[in-house]
Amino acid sequence: MKLKPNNIIRGLVLCCSLFVFSAQRLSAQDSTNAEAQITLTFGEQDSVKQAKAVVTKNHTPLKGVDVVFLIKKSFGSLPLGDAVTTDDNGEAVADFPTDMPGDQQGNVTVLAKVDENDQTGELLASKSTNWGVPTTVKDRFDQRTLWGTAENAPLTLVVTVVSLVALVWGIILYMVLQLGKINRLGKA
């Protein structure tokens, strides 16, 4: 069960298509709420990584909008704490946790989302960063274990069984040869 090239390619294709898909959705929303916009940027303050969302309407910062920051995951999006209300500059900031697993390179996709409301409508911005902790899947599947495949049987077990079987069946073979000898002795 190794990671095969075609699986990697399949995964890449899936990622790309997801990206294209979300990009399309974003642009569609932008056009329906032309006046309200959300932009997502990443920054660092006092060595704390932060995601910053700026909500504007007709290029003017909007105050008092609740922004939810999320991280995109396989089975849903993980909120980064509670919703943050935009300040006078239309800015909402969320600290990025230091221990968030990313993909193998540490990439994570951050979402900034404003729920449907009269002022802005639904807004969503999405951006990737390599702030995540790179994850490597630790497989024990190539190791020799009792629950492994037949090919991955523990060596001590294989050696023990094979040597016992060889010994006993060697003796059996010897016995059969003796029977042949008895047969030949009778012919003479």
């Binding site: 006993v168 003796i171 010897y174 016995m175 003796q178 029977l179 000898k181 008895i182 047969n183 030949r184 002795l185 009778g186 012919k187």
Partner: peptide, 24 residues
């Protein structure tokens, strides 16, 4: 019967076989 003639050699062979198998 495998051409059993009851020769001394044949008897020696079965005695040997029985001893080995009894241990095995």
């Amino acid at each position: 019967a495998l051409n059993w003639r009851g020769t001394a050699q044949q008897y020696a062979l079965i005695h040997k076989c029985i001893n080995v198998l009894a241990v095995l």
